[in-house]
Lab assay of single mutants.
Amino acid sequence: TQVHVDGVTYTFSNPEEAKKFADEMAKRKGGTWEIKDGHIHVE
């Protein structure tokens, strides 16, 4: 599962880990995350 944050791609083999990471990054940025085309995007 790929997580895209500010133009950087992080790859996780476990989708649950990817979601936890996205959640943390979104909180830090004061933003949100969503799943697009099977990838997670942090806004």
Rank of each mutant, 00 (worst) to 15 (best):
E17K: 09
T32H: 13
D23H: 07
G38M: 04
V42A: 02
H39F: 06
D6M: 06
D23W: 06
H41L: 09
E16Q: 09
D23Y: 07
G31E: 04
V3F: 01
Q2C: 07
T11L: 13
V3H: 00
P15R: 10
G30P: 03
E34M: 12
A18Y: 01
G30S: 04
D37N: 10
F21C: 06
V42T: 02
A26V: 15
H41P: 02
F21W: 08
K36G: 03
H4S: 07
H41T: 10
G31L: 05
E24P: 00
V8W: 11
F21I: 01
K29T: 15
K19L: 14
A18K: 00
I35V: 11
E17Y: 08
H4I: 09
P15L: 15
D37Q: 05
A22N: 01
E17H: 10
F12K: 00
V5K: 01
K19S: 09
V5H: 05
H4Y: 11
D23T: 12
E43Q: 14
T32Q: 08
I40Y: 14
T32I: 09
T11F: 14
K27P: 03
I35N: 05
I40E: 02
V8A: 11
G31Y: 08
M25W: 12
A22K: 01
K36S: 06
T1V: 13
W33V: 13
D37H: 05
I40H: 02
K20G: 10
H4K: 06
E43R: 14
D6K: 06
P15N: 09
N14S: 11
S13K: 11
D23F: 06
S13P: 11
S13L: 12
D23E: 13
F21T: 00
G30E: 08
K29N: 15
K20I: 12
K36H: 10
I40N: 01
G38L: 04
S13Q: 12
G30Y: 04
E34S: 11
G7V: 03
A26G: 03
E17R: 07
Q2F: 14
E17D: 13
H41D: 04
K27V: 12
K20L: 13
Y10H: 08
F12I: 02
V42P: 02
S13D: 13
V3K: 00
V5R: 01
T32D: 05
T9P: 04
E16R: 08
K29D: 13
E16A: 10
V8R: 11
V42W: 04
H39G: 07
I35T: 06
Q2R: 11
T32V: 10
D37M: 05
H4E: 05
S13M: 12
V5G: 03
D37W: 04
D6Y: 07
M25R: 04
T1N: 06
I40R: 00
F12N: 00
F12V: 01
R28K: 15
E24S: 05
N14Y: 07
D37A: 06
A22R: 01
M25F: 06
Q2A: 09
W33K: 02
K27W: 13
A22P: 00
S13H: 11
E17F: 07
E43F: 15
E17T: 10
K20W: 09
T9W: 10
W33T: 06
F12D: 00
V8D: 11
M25E: 15
Y10E: 01
S13I: 11
E16N: 10
R28E: 15
A18L: 01
H39N: 08
K29P: 10
E16H: 10
T11N: 11
P15A: 12
M25D: 04
T1R: 04
V8C: 11
K36I: 14
I40G: 01
D23Q: 11
E34Q: 13
K27E: 14
K19F: 15
I40S: 02
E43W: 15
V8N: 11
I40L: 06
V42L: 08
G38C: 07
K36L: 09
G31M: 06
H39I: 15
T11P: 06
V3L: 02
S13R: 09
T32E: 06
R28T: 14
R28L: 15
T1L: 10
K27M: 13
A18S: 03
F12R: 00
V42K: 02
G31A: 06
H4C: 06
H39M: 13
K36F: 08
D6H: 06
S13E: 13
R28F: 14
I35G: 04
N14T: 12
R28Y: 14
K27I: 13
K19A: 12
T11H: 13
K29C: 11
E16D: 12
G38I: 02
A18I: 00
V3Q: 00
E17P: 03
T1E: 04
S13V: 12
V3D: 00
K36Y: 08
H39L: 09
G38V: 03
V42I: 12
D23L: 06
D37F: 05
Y10W: 10
H39D: 09
V42C: 03
H4N: 06
Q2Y: 14
V3G: 00
K27D: 14
E16I: 09
Y10K: 03
F12C: 06
G7L: 05
N14M: 08
G7F: 06
Y10A: 02
E24N: 05
K29M: 15
K19P: 00
T1P: 05
K27H: 14
H4L: 07
A22C: 03
E43T: 15
E16Y: 09
H39P: 02
V3E: 00
H41K: 06
V42G: 02
H41E: 06
V42M: 06
W33D: 03
E16C: 08
A22I: 01
H39R: 04
N14H: 10
E17Q: 10
S13F: 11
A22W: 01
H4V: 08
V5M: 12
G31H: 03
G31K: 03
E24W: 12
V5Y: 07
E17N: 09
N14G: 08
H4F: 11
Y10V: 05
Q2N: 12
N14L: 09
E24Q: 07
V3C: 02
I35Q: 07
V5T: 05
K29Q: 13
F21Y: 06
V8Y: 13
T32R: 12
E43I: 15
G30D: 09
S13T: 12
K20R: 12
T9Q: 09
Q2H: 13
K29W: 15
A18G: 05
N14A: 09
M25V: 14
E24Y: 11
E17S: 10
A26W: 02
D23A: 10
E24D: 11
A22Y: 02
A26Y: 03
M25C: 06
S13W: 12
D23I: 13
A22E: 02
Y10N: 01
V8T: 11
Q2G: 05
A26N: 03
V5E: 02
K19M: 15
H41A: 05
I40A: 02
G38W: 02
K20Q: 13
W33N: 02
G30C: 09
W33C: 05
F21R: 01
A22F: 01
T9A: 10
K20P: 01
I40W: 04
K27C: 12
M25N: 06
K29H: 15
E17L: 10
H41Y: 15
I35K: 04
G7K: 07
K19C: 10
P15W: 15
V5C: 09
K19R: 12
T32P: 02
V8F: 12
F21V: 02
P15E: 14
D6T: 05
I35C: 11
Q2M: 14
D23S: 10
G31I: 03
E43V: 15
Y10F: 11
G30W: 03
K36A: 06
G7P: 01
V3M: 01
D6S: 08
H41V: 12
G38P: 02
V42Y: 05
G31S: 05
H41I: 13
E24I: 08
T1H: 08
G38E: 04
A26K: 02
P15Q: 13
A22H: 01
A18Q: 00
G30Q: 07
K36N: 06
H39C: 09
M25S: 08
N14F: 07
K27F: 14
E24A: 08
T1K: 04
T32Y: 14
T11I: 13
V3T: 00
A18N: 00
Q2D: 10
T32G: 07
V8E: 13
T1Q: 06
M25P: 00
G7Q: 07
F21N: 00
K20V: 12
K20S: 12
D37L: 04
P15T: 12
H39S: 10
H39V: 15
K19T: 12
E17M: 10
A22T: 01
K27S: 11
F12S: 00
T11D: 08
E43D: 11
V3R: 00
D37V: 03
Y10M: 04
E24H: 07
K20M: 12
I35D: 05
G7T: 05
T1D: 03
V42Q: 01
T32F: 13
D37C: 08
K20H: 11
T11Y: 14
G31D: 05
A26M: 04
N14P: 00
K27T: 12
T11W: 14
A22V: 01
E16M: 09
G38D: 05
E34F: 14
T32L: 07
G30K: 06
K20A: 14
I35M: 14
G38H: 05
R28I: 15
